[in-house]
Design a protein around this nucleic acid. Sequence first.
DNA 1: GTGGTCTAGACCACT
DNA 2: GTGGTCTAGACCACC
Lengths: 121, 121, 121, 121
Amino acid sequence: MSWKLDKNRPICPQICERLCVEIAGGVLAPHERLCSVRELAVRAGVNPNTVQKAFEQLEAQGLIYSVRGSGWFVSESTEDAATIVKELTLRKTSAYFEEMSALGYSESDVKEYIKEWRMYE
Amino acid sequence: MSWKLDKNRPICPQICERLCVEIAGGVLAPHERLCSVRELAVRAGVNPNTVQKAFEQLEAQGLIYSVRGSGWFVSESTEDAATIVKELTLRKTSAYFEEMSALGYSESDVKEYIKEWRMYE
Amino acid sequence: MSWKLDKNRPICPQICERLCVEIAGGVLAPHERLCSVRELAVRAGVNPNTVQKAFEQLEAQGLIYSVRGSGWFVSESTEDAATIVKELTLRKTSAYFEEMSALGYSESDVKEYIKEWRMYE
Amino acid sequence: MSWKLDKNRPICPQICERLCVEIAGGVLAPHERLCSVRELAVRAGVNPNTVQKAFEQLEAQGLIYSVRGSGWFVSESTEDAATIVKELTLRKTSAYFEEMSALGYSESDVKEYIKEWRMYE
DNA sequence: GTGGTCTAGACCACT
DNA sequence: GTGGTCTAGACCACC
């Protein structure tokens, strides 16, 4: 696992989203043990508290569970993760169109713009 | 001007962007007087301080200038505004692709997804 | 509002439960503003981060929502709060019976014990 | 002995309490040999270190003693165990009333609630 | 070693 | 002033 994070966005949700994607995609199987809070913090170069918070949020969503003194584990069901990823996709795309709309682009303007898009870097 | 703002996003930059777009698009002509801070605040349903701050930021970018006791006016040159809008467009789109990438979508995945997109609401 | 907390139990859930009870009981009405994080922290004699965490958990449950720079507010619907209080009641009572059972008491033993109970202090 | 433990509570004190109850109740007689740490760990499905720690805590309370190379044994006196069980009963019940009070229930509310209680599962 | 909780204090953007 | 986020570091119980 490479754990580069985008420093321009809040770290905590990035960790959540990433793990959610890995759970949804089967990279992390049910009942598989996650990195420890401390280890992941070191790997990602962030504070353990931030990782802890992310894990707790995933727990609140029912995606993972913790066992004291032993670690965090992927929940039995993996479907929730997939649902959440889809929701995120929808929400982010919707937000993007909203913002572009505020910049004066119509829906088809955006679609045209995206069609021609070339990612750099 | 209808001044509905997206309550889910920070207000201040929304005001900046919106005025920037209007200046770039010629809706607001050079040396035209803007709404007063108070009036705009009322129309948009936000705190006058927030509008004030937005105006100050636009001033710092050279898009508008203030005349004591008389109000805020659009600057002579309109090109800066257009540049800024293009920059925003680029930045937002780039950020969108980055986030989608973090959700596991390739560049072409996103393009395909966008092609099928239908805005609701 | 008196904000004495039980120092023998984790503070964060205590704050959550207390606010939940007040929302469920109508002490806090929909859209009413809560104490600020900092103020409540001072009143309860705890760290602002702990209060912040409690508020975020209540937000995750849909009981309250935050407005940047303005504060936290009770959500429109109050029903969830009542449901959660009932759930807590059930869970705590169930846990109590479990623990008493582990101490060798039958269900009726416990009921008899409780009937005679007199709270001191 | 069936050694099902409640996975939702800390393991170590559960082991302590359970053995304490068995000593107090005469299930384990003075000078009787306890299960070995390893065997008990296997039966209860927990880490041997946890069992070891529990035994050490019971030793500190004077309820059991160890004989090198031979195992752990119940102490001569059984009274301490009974006292501890009573104390636990008192403490747990007191804590339960406290928590219910924080949920808005008066002492008589709780008593009424308990009277109607039916354990499920 | 692990997670769980809390404190202290910082910086930022927004009202 | 407010919330939002993060860092740093502490202590505890459990494995």
